[in-house]
Design a binder for these strands. Sequence first.
DNA 1: TTGTAAGCGTTATCAG
DNA 2: CTGATAACGCTTACAA
Lengths: 339, 339
Amino acid sequence: MASLADVSREAGVSVATASRVLNGATHPVSADTRSRVLAAAERLGYSPSALAQALVTRTSRLIGVIVSDIVNPYFSVIARGVDDMSTRAGYVTMLSNADRRTSSEITRLQTMRDYRAAGVIFAGSGYVDDPRTPELAKAVAAARERGVLSISLTERDIDCPVITADNRAAAYDLTDHLVSQGHRRIVFVEGPAGMVATEQRRAGFLDRMTEAGLRDLAECVEGGFDFEAGHAAALRVLASRDLPDAIVAANDEAAVGALNALRQARIDVPGQVSVAGIDDLPVARFVGLTTVSLPLYELGAMAARRVIDAGTAGPAPEPGPPVVLPHRLVPRETTARRP
Amino acid sequence: MASLADVSREAGVSVATASRVLNGATHPVSADTRSRVLAAAERLGYSPSALAQALVTRTSRLIGVIVSDIVNPYFSVIARGVDDMSTRAGYVTMLSNADRRTSSEITRLQTMRDYRAAGVIFAGSGYVDDPRTPELAKAVAAARERGVLSISLTERDIDCPVITADNRAAAYDLTDHLVSQGHRRIVFVEGPAGMVATEQRRAGFLDRMTEAGLRDLAECVEGGFDFEAGHAAALRVLASRDLPDAIVAANDEAAVGALNALRQARIDVPGQVSVAGIDDLPVARFVGLTTVSLPLYELGAMAARRVIDAGTAGPAPEPGPPVVLPHRLVPRETTARRP
DNA sequence: TTGTAAGCGTTATCAG
DNA sequence: CTGATAACGCTTACAA
């Protein structure tokens, strides 16, 4: 309602000075005028138009985050990290679900760019050999021209800063834990086919098994990132041959799915079979699942902080090497030592 | 980069005509000019500044949703509904976590208003006798002055349209189901103290028990909306006396928490005790929890649609009576008939 | 059918 | 220290 012009009129100064006191610029203003303007603003309930500000400064206090599906706890934790940091800095976060479609990521990025978002954060993992990635890369570049800083939370073939967790190492460390506990026959329930994260986690598992001389006892089975996939995979394992020492799922949800299947089949976990996952979602803690904690919240928060800093600090768009945040093994009750 | 002015220059027309063809106004434009402008826009990769548009039209294609905590699946499903609808209409959704603090809701609403959001959706339940609600109400009114339409997904003392589910009836229907299955001694695990939703759900439970002449066998115990709360409550029930016929939790998470506690204690569910929740979150389906499905996704989607329609259709700000979307009992495996 | 021009609410440059 | 004033990019009467 009340605009800067209104305030300036009420205070008997020019809009220029009103602007100067109301936005804490470095420009000097006499104490007297300052207080007059402040009083007027207060009286009129003035609140600046973020739109006008963004239009003229060519950058907003909007931070976008593009996830695959906000209902997936993996992403909602990331989004929470983004929003907490954004809010603290007076930014507001824009959210978009891309359902793992690269084409959606592109269009969503574009509409966020049209709002001159200060930055947009890509939370989802890409696909291997995705023919659309170049297009995304181009959109990211175009957005950068318009002043929006993209940040990816996974390594993808886009030219932008990366803040990520080490999926491969996470799987590796988890496998290492199992191996050192005496497990030998381990089956790995893979993530969704074609996703980079899937590949990385499988590789971590296989690498450690190979180093342990257990390559022949390692087995990878099809899976997915949800309860059902883990459940189904466990059922298949149950049906096919005698029990492995452990089942490692590509993520927590699948692990919990497997866990349920096993227990429904009256298999003792961890007595007969150990079960572990990756991510450390809230549900993992609840069911006592051994897992590796990924810095999801921190990833979101740090990415947001980075776009905020880029705005305030000098426009030093140094891509730099990927920032890799540490993960942490969290042994709980679904795994046990094997004699 | 490329602005309307650039396009108009490239096409050899005025910015007015360029604007007219590029935004599909009703204003007549010759086929020839139209194609020239289109071509120019295409060539330059023109994309309108949503900021400038919003500034001049005094309304944006931004829809805000304020939740308690996006990590809570209850809210992420709502947010998903909002975003799907927004996206379909070319809007972008702004998300904010208020952590159940009314004061945060107020400030978040204000910053969304400063971006001239077309609307903001309040997803969280309020508190009973919340001294800050009047303040919120005032902020909502002020926002409306600026053209932002607020919508609440729960009944609160704010003057704005309400699109909601009937918490009381949901609990009532669930209890009815249990009663008709022959359960008599039922304990109700309450939600967080002070929340309106908590009161409503408890009331629904109590109402049905009273009608069934089972008021004396109905018992309410302290709880909460998360796993831990349900778990703890179940433990307390277990410790205090002989088993009830059923445990109804104020929501699914708490129900699953209770379920786990019971099973860990080697109680047969539903053999000895039935367990049920409310919400029908993904986890409920997974564990086979009997629950009542609340139209969470629909609530979000419909609220978003309403702000979108308000923008396109006439500015008919008829508050009208609350819209109540239907819920549905979902019997699953954690409840069984009592002889 | 097309163009001119007045804003929308700020910031920022340049003179005073 | 303060004030005009020109942008920012677009929409929309009002003219032509």
